[in-house]
């Protein structure tokens, strides 16, 4: 069969010990049975391994860091689009999503680059600090959480939350506190780094289980695959994981995707308690780095996303194989300095 040729741009080429999702997404795309996809890698730094993976990434351009703002990003993409026709762009970094969501319509209208992203409103709803409201609105249990601005408020929360409790920053960092003294220490640590407010969350014990999922933005969950980490690195990242057959977990995940009309890929992180209750801890607004496992057990989510971005109808996946494992490994690429020179001085290779 003749495969249709298209070009997809992807970020997240940092396939390091705490990997970005770019390379796994690209592997899924390269294995499409209907599309022949040329990959344009978009990098932020000069040592992202994906830049040097010629078999997966056909061409690379540097992007301005997200801190430079969406106007600068658009300017750079305008240049890239003048060099080559990009059909679909898949951003894979949390920090860059805000800017891409902001300019998604302009990309389509001015540069004819399709994306498949949620709206800003839905993107904001699943922010850590809004998790309580999110759970209530979309019918999923979440740990009880409160936003506080004063350390003394912890005392008031002791009655309903008990210790241990989780003290979290608005965007990053989470600590488990066993006493008021610890909790107040973490409170100050967090405000020093991330500012107000501080999130105080119920500590839910159990097994962590994760789902990578994709929604069509109209209320259908196109695919969802559940996984449990088998081994984690000292950075807390999955080294190995296994696909699960857990209908209840998948039902809950589908409900979240359907009710929120999520558009694009995402990762749902749950805790399954001893009583078989599932608590949603976090919803990451992009594919996880382990998304290639979904492909490996029968659901090629990156390919589905590209098709939907192109306006094609995609039928929901109905099943996948449980018991498939992923095992990460590292691999040393040998690169001549001239390649590094090329990307460093020209901003592309």
């Amino acid at each position: 069969m003749n495969k249709r040729k298209i070009t997809v741009a992807a970020t997240g080429l940092n396939n390091i010990d705490s990997p970005g999702p770019g390379i796994p997404v690209i592997r899924g795309l390269k294995e499409s049975e209907t599309l022949d996809i040329r990959i344009v890698g978009l990098s932020y730094e000069t040592l992202e391994p994906g830049i040097y993976m010629h078999d997966l990434v056909d061409k690379v351009y540097q992007l301005p860091l997200p801190t430079a703002g969406s106007a600068v990003l658009k300017e750079r993409l305008r240049y890239i689009a003048s060099q080559e026709k990009i059909d679909v762009l898949i951003p894979n970094f949390d920090a860059e999503l805000h800017n891409f969501i902001k300019i998604q319509d302009d990309l389509k209208n001015e540069l004819n680059i399709a994306t498949f992203l949620p709206s800003q409103a839905i993107f904001d709803e699943r922010q850590k600090s809004e998790l309580g409201k999110f759970g209530e609105k979309y019918g999923v249990k979440v740990p009880e959480s409160h936003m506080i601005n004063q350390v003394t408020e912890i005392r008031k929360l002791e009655e309903s939350l008990h210790y241990p409790m989780v003290i979290k920053g608005r965007y990053y960092d989470a600590y488990i506190a066993l006493t008021y003294e610890q909790a107040s220490n973490y409170f100050y640590k967090i405000i020093a780094k991330w500012g107000y407010p501080v999130i105080v969350q119920e500590f839910v014990t159990g097994t962590e289980v994760n789902v990578t999922a994709i929604g069509d933005g109209k209320g259908t969950c196109i695919g969802a695959v559940a996984m449990r980490k088998l081994y984690i690195t000292d950075k807390g990242k999955a080294w190995s994981g296994i696909s699960l057959e857990d209908d209840e977990l998948l039902d809950i995940s589908k409900r979240v995707i359907e009710n929120s009309k999520w558009r694009g890929g995402c990762e749902l992180e749950f805790i399954k308690t001893k009583d078989d209750e599932y608590y949603l801890l976090e919803m990451n607004p992009r594919f996880p780095a382990w998304v290639y496992l979904a492909n490996g057990c029968g659901q090629n989510h990156p390919e589905a996303l590209v098709k939907m971005a192109l306006g094609e109808e995609v039928k929901p996946f109905t099943n996948y194989q449980s018991g498939k494992m992923f095992i990460r490994y590292s691999y040393d690429l040998i690169v001549d300095i001239s390649e590094f020179q090329q990307i460093s001085t020209m901003g592309e290779r």
Binding site: I337, F340, Q341, S344, T345, M346
Partner: peptide
Amino acid sequence: ISENGFIFNPLTGDSFSV
């Protein structure tokens, strides 16, 4: 020293642009 201003110092492994 390359024409586009890339400098590589093989003694230290550092690279520079000018």
